[in-house]
Design a protein around this nucleic acid. Sequence first.
DNA 1: CATGATGATTGTCC
DNA 2: GGACAATCATCATG
Length: 377
Amino acid sequence: MDSPPRPQRPAPPPPAPRRPDTGEILQQIMAITDQSLEEAQARKHALNCHRMKPALFSVLCEIKEKTVLSIHGIQEEGPPNAQLMRLDNMLLAEGVSRPERRGRGGSAAAANTATPGGCPNDNSLEHSDYRAKLSQIRQIYHSELEKYEQACHEFTTHVTNLLREQSRMRPVSPKEIERMVGVIHGKFNAIQMQLKQSTCEAVMTLRSRFLDARRKRRNFSKQATEVLNEYFYSHLSNPYPSEEAKEELARRGGITVSQVSNWFGNKRIRYKKNMGKFQEEATIYTTKMTVDTTKVGGLGSQASCPSTPSSGSSGPFPLTSARDTLITLQTLASLRPAPAGGSLWSRARGSWQGAAPPVSTASPAGDPSGINSDASN
DNA sequence: CATGATGATTGTCC
DNA sequence: GGACAATCATCATG
């Protein structure tokens, strides 16, 4: 270690030890901010051209060589970070990660089918609201992400430039710069993770709110209840619509198939529990159907009910009059005990028909056409 | 606000 | 897997 030439060898005893005054140092530091850029550049240039600079540089090199060993061990590698992966996966699954992918129909349709009793018509308003909010979240997420990435990039280049600049004054290896960049990226990644986390939270909140909203009960439209009641009372002896019939009823009522199923489940039970209460309703619908069928003459606009699809002879829903439907049902039932329909039918006979009251005979309106014969039969 | 009506959910059975 | 029964939660009404 060849000692660099000292400026004052005579070594006059310093008049005062001149303890490092922290206040003074602080003031100097603060003064830096007051310096103009030119001033700072000039100072830097002066420092660079200082005759002591090479000496200082070598000293720093030496110090560094000693310390680099201890630094070596610190080398912290970012952990694989399972949580970040989980967040990424979730954001991907929720369609947040993809930046406004056009034609999100695929995942949207999947979500639709995934939701139990997902309703394409009824909940469309709420659904679009949900999607709008999700899109909003996605937008915010991406703009923030972009900001972070830009800031990270800017900061990285800034630090890199700074280090390169400093490398003229002190030994800075490219590997060190690389490491510093890694550290910066790590810090920004932490921020990014926070962003992802809060985005996930927002999506979850939105989701739960949406589900709660869907859980809210809303009475069916008059049209829907009419369609359902018409079918119910015209098939009183066997109020078990087939899958196709349910679909047709759902379509006509503007509700979902599962809602139709729910409705029939509730209706059967409540009817059976309190038949007296439903007598009036039964009369209303059966007479209504009589009027409709006689008026329309079997074309069945409102009153017509999808007959059993198991016949398969004509279309899925041969629109016949209530009486025709009944006949078809009965003949079908007597002709062929269908595999699925058969068990249903027998089940209905066992548990349902036994409980079903003779609506037609009890009907106070004294229906002359005896349209309710299916109920009494 | 109490009450009944009603759509939805849950657990059980076949 | 569908039907039933009980129950919940909300709506509608007086």
